[in-house]
Amino acid sequence: MDPIVKKNNKKMLVGIVTSDKMDKTVVVAVEGRVLHPLYKKYITRTKKYKAHDAENQASIGDRVQIQECRPVSKDKRFRLTAVLEKAR
């Protein structure tokens, strides 16, 4: 019998940190492009996610990668996996 293999089906998103004022939490703005149904033009949509940052390593303006995880609190469903680019 084959061992059960679990796949990692968790969302990975890349965005910019907009707030780091909370302890161990950052707010990440993720931009996405959607096609307008009538005018057929692409529109930029921004969604904000709260992510768990255990070491408080991200600061405002950093480009970060976040991954979906189990609920950490009422609003936090993502955790910070990497700081891709520090703010200048």
Rank of each mutant, 00 (worst) to 15 (best):
25 T>E: 09
47 K>S: 10
3 P>D: 07
26 V>Y: 06
31 E>V: 00
34 V>P: 01
59 S>T: 15
16 I>P: 00
60 I>K: 12
44 T>E: 05
33 R>H: 09
16 I>W: 12
65 Q>T: 02
20 D>F: 02
57 Q>W: 04
16 I>K: 12
28 V>Q: 09
2 D>E: 12
56 N>G: 12
20 D>P: 06
81 T>E: 13
2 D>K: 14
10 K>T: 04
78 F>S: 04
47 K>C: 11
71 P>T: 08
4 I>G: 01
14 V>Y: 00
20 D>L: 02
19 S>V: 05
13 L>Q: 15
63 R>L: 14
64 V>K: 04
12 M>S: 03
48 K>F: 05
35 L>K: 10
7 K>D: 07
85 E>R: 11
67 Q>C: 13
7 K>L: 15
76 K>M: 08
76 K>L: 09
5 V>L: 09
15 G>Y: 03
14 V>E: 10
1 M>F: 14
80 L>D: 08
2 D>T: 15
35 L>V: 08
28 V>H: 10
44 T>V: 15
74 K>S: 11
35 L>E: 11
83 V>K: 11
38 L>R: 02
68 E>C: 09
56 N>M: 07
70 R>Y: 10
79 R>N: 07
70 R>C: 04
23 D>P: 12
12 M>W: 00
3 P>K: 07
13 L>T: 13
11 K>L: 14
87 A>L: 09
61 G>V: 09
28 V>D: 05
86 K>P: 05
88 R>P: 13
14 V>P: 01
73 S>C: 00
39 Y>T: 05
1 M>C: 11
66 I>C: 03
86 K>A: 13
43 I>P: 00
10 K>V: 01
8 N>E: 15
33 R>M: 15
59 S>E: 05
72 V>S: 05
78 F>G: 07
73 S>D: 13
7 K>Y: 13
36 H>E: 00
15 G>E: 11
66 I>L: 14
65 Q>F: 01
21 K>F: 01
73 S>M: 01
10 K>N: 12
62 D>V: 04
38 L>G: 06
72 V>R: 10
62 D>G: 12
51 A>R: 01
26 V>G: 01
68 E>I: 13
67 Q>K: 15
72 V>I: 12
25 T>Q: 04
1 M>Y: 12
30 V>W: 03
87 A>T: 15
40 K>T: 06
15 G>W: 05
32 G>P: 00
50 K>Q: 14
62 D>C: 09
78 F>Y: 14
49 Y>P: 06
39 Y>H: 04
18 T>G: 02
9 N>Y: 12
29 A>Q: 03
22 M>G: 01
59 S>A: 07
85 E>L: 08
60 I>F: 08
30 V>M: 06
31 E>Y: 05
21 K>A: 06
41 K>Q: 04
80 L>E: 11
11 K>M: 15
2 D>M: 11
81 T>W: 10
46 T>P: 01
81 T>I: 13
71 P>G: 06
78 F>E: 07
81 T>G: 06
53 D>N: 12
21 K>M: 08
20 D>I: 03
26 V>K: 05
6 K>F: 00
31 E>T: 02
71 P>W: 02
10 K>I: 01
17 V>K: 00
50 K>A: 04
40 K>W: 07
58 A>D: 04
4 I>K: 08
41 K>F: 04
53 D>F: 10
9 N>K: 07
56 N>T: 08
37 P>C: 11
